[in-house]
């Protein structure tokens, strides 16, 4: 058989393949250790927990990745055709049982460990003093609404939506609870206080994402989805849309300003004063 002869002794493909796989493993390890392109620092307790879970998963899968790729490279090199006879085997029952059990334990174990962080975002009860902010996605802007001094959100009447007259959310002019609502295009929150966002959409599906919060939540028309967090650090953070919402998807952008408690109160006062005019 011609192909068999021409292959005998030729180590070139095996060496080349081994080199490519080594390069792959090496560069992957380098970029993960050097963190050249990486997560920004997390700014919430749950963010830190998610980072820990990520790190754990990275270590476990990283070990599997390196071992599996190196095993592949080694086998390809070791068992290249150099005239030897193939070792006849149909398999090994014990091995099958071992690696099935091992992967099951590792995979499900990781999944079980990850449930806690998920629960922190979605299950944990909201504290009584939490600041509620309503987040509304609309092609292609974010709008944020605070209940104002009365602590109540005003009613929304979709027929009243008209951004050109300054009512982008359709606040009912006849509802007194809505008179003092603060409506702004950027999110302002105080540091070290629990925040509850009520995420909704006016038209199509959007997705609220702040990298530093480690939280992403779709804004689905017809639903109001609550998420809550506590920021530990002041600063300005970018909010993007992460669910395809139309041609302006890429520039649907807003800022999250985390202020000190005093600055936040000052900002709130200023907004209330503007509303009163």
């Amino acid at each position: 058989m011609g192909s068999r002869k021409s292959n005998a002794g030729s180590a070139a493909p095996a060496v080349l393949l081994a080199i490519v796989i080594l390069l792959l493993v090496g560069s992957t390890l380098y970029f993960h250790i050097a963190k050249t392109w990486w997560f920004p620092p997390a700014i919430t307790p749950v963010g830190h927990e998610i980072d820990q879970q990520f790190f754990l998963t990275l270590v476990v899968t990283g070990i599997v990745f390196v071992l599996a790729q190196l095993a592949l490279a080694w086998m390809v090199f070791k068992y290249r055709d150099h005239g030897q006879k193939a070792h006849f085997t149909r398999g090994n029952h014990a091995l099958e049982v071992i690696w099935t059990t091992a992967t099951l334990v590792i995979f499900v174990g990781l999944g079980a460990l990850a449930t806690h962080a998920w629960g922190q975002v979605h299950f944990g009860g909201v504290e009584p003093g939490a600041l509620q902010v309503e987040v509304t996605g609309v092609q292609f802007t974010w709008t944020f609404r605070y209940p104002g001094p009365d602590g109540k959100f005003g009613k929304i009447v979709p027929a009243d939506i008209d951004a050109s007259v300054g009512n982008p959310l359709g606040l009912d002019p006849n509802d007194p609870a809505g008179k003092d609502d603060i409506v702004v295009p950027d999110l302002y929150v105080p540091v070290n206080q629990q925040i509850e966002l009520m995420i909704r959409s006016q038209d199509v599906i959007h997705s609220f994402f702040v990298r530093e919060l480690r939280i992403k939540q779709d804004a689905v028309p017809g639903l109001i989805v609550p998420i809550h967090f506590r920021v530990e650090q002041t600063g300005d953070y970018e909010i993007t849309c992460n669910q395809l919402c139309g041609l302006g998807h890429y520039h649907m952008h807003a800022m999250m300003h985390v202020l000190s408690q005093a600055d936040f109160e000052q900002w709130e006062k200023k907004q209330e004063a503007q509303n009163a005019q």
Binding site: F88, T89, G91, N92, L95
Partner: peptide, 8 residues
Amino acid sequence: MPHSTTTD
């Protein structure tokens, strides 16, 4: 892993 083939 080695696995011998029996006559059967």
